[in-house]
Design a protein around this nucleic acid. Sequence first.
DNA 1: TATTTATAATAGCATTACTATCATAAAAGT
DNA 2: ACTTTTATGATAGTAATGCTATTATAAATA
Lengths: 237, 237
Amino acid sequence: MATSIHISLDHKCYLREPESTELGKKIISESIRLINALGFEQFTFKKLGAEIGSTEASIYRYFENKHKLLVYLVSWYWAWVDYTVMFQTHNISDPRKRLCRALEVLTKAGQDDDPNIAYIDERILYRIVVAESSKVYHTKEVDAENKEGYFLEIKRLCRRLAQMVLDLNPAYPYPHALISTVMDAAHQQMYFAKHLPSLTDIKDTQHPEEETKDFLKHLLFSTIDSIQYKSKQSNHG
Amino acid sequence: MATSIHISLDHKCYLREPESTELGKKIISESIRLINALGFEQFTFKKLGAEIGSTEASIYRYFENKHKLLVYLVSWYWAWVDYTVMFQTHNISDPRKRLCRALEVLTKAGQDDDPNIAYIDERILYRIVVAESSKVYHTKEVDAENKEGYFLEIKRLCRRLAQMVLDLNPAYPYPHALISTVMDAAHQQMYFAKHLPSLTDIKDTQHPEEETKDFLKHLLFSTIDSIQYKSKQSNHG
DNA sequence: TATTTATAATAGCATTACTATCATAAAAGT
DNA sequence: ACTTTTATGATAGTAATGCTATTATAAATA
């Protein structure tokens, strides 16, 4: 991850490409800081404008509204995680080790201390994704936005990881469901550890990501392994 | 569930108890319909007032804002599921069968066709919870609201189910994390089946709850069973 | 040099998210 | 029967939000 890479999105949730101008990059970098500080509900384009010494109207030329900006940030995050997973796993031939490595990337995405893109702080972005990302698809516009391709990045990562599950056990019948559950839980458990500790066993001390990884690693491999190859039925129930 | 029961909350997210008056009950029943129809973002107290032939100001006497109304609805839902789980499992002595039954209640909560409370449509409420419930704790006020007891109902259910996990295998180290993951996934997978099918293997045809139940049953029991009693370490890694 | 493009500055407007006041009808207390 | 409280409705008002439109100007490009 030392050399400069470029993360590009598969869709256009923006009006003008933020990467192409100074103001656009400032919008991205400061919105990450401001959404993290205020929470998405309290965040407005007016406040963002004030923060970057620009105006509401100027920001509206880049994004139709704050929801589409959040779609951009979350999509960028998933594209970045997908790239990192691909990079970190492509030369691991053992399917079990490969999936294990991928899970490590997923759970440690908030620990990244080697930023690629000068104007994107991945560690703060990670916190936004943990706290706010479910809001990008929990809206009445989800079907229309899905058609526009707004969720292609997370789908691509899900497909990649589901394939890793099948590489390990081609008989497992729910690879996408299992992966989306794990992807979600990786964030959810970190959030619970911090804010709703009764809903988890992960402690918000020292290395919660490590504990979350252990929890999910066991869950993931137990689930995959307990389906017999060439048998689609489990022995439970 | 035939005889009339009463679901009461462990906290006060309301200003005036909605159950105590006609207007209060209308606020609850119509808000369920309206949030389902418009989505939470487009839902306002003004629109609700118009719908029930009352005014914004009158509704504000019951709830400080629409967020607290959502907290009420979601808390009511979890209290109701908790009651149903308790009722449906309390005379099952086999821990495996008991947990299995509990999981069935969790995944079939949207199928309930025997409403207890005249003014609450549990089937529509279920759809609201699936689509909007994550918004109740993904806010900047989560810690303050947690202190006020706003999440006691979901915590109680999580504790109850986690205990069932331990009854089955006292050596399993992450019972709460496992249960909160499954509770979340039960809703998430149903939502994905309908709106983001690439993120799941559950098909939105005929009986998606049944498929979700099968997926989660296998995941849950594989995970619990693969920890050896008196051994805290898994053999994966 | 002409022209396009990007931004800033300002204004404006409908809606949202409330709060406050007052009148009135119903319910409860004495 | 009579006060008094309580619940609702009606109306008004305010600050903030979520935009859109217009114009001026500076910078980049043709």
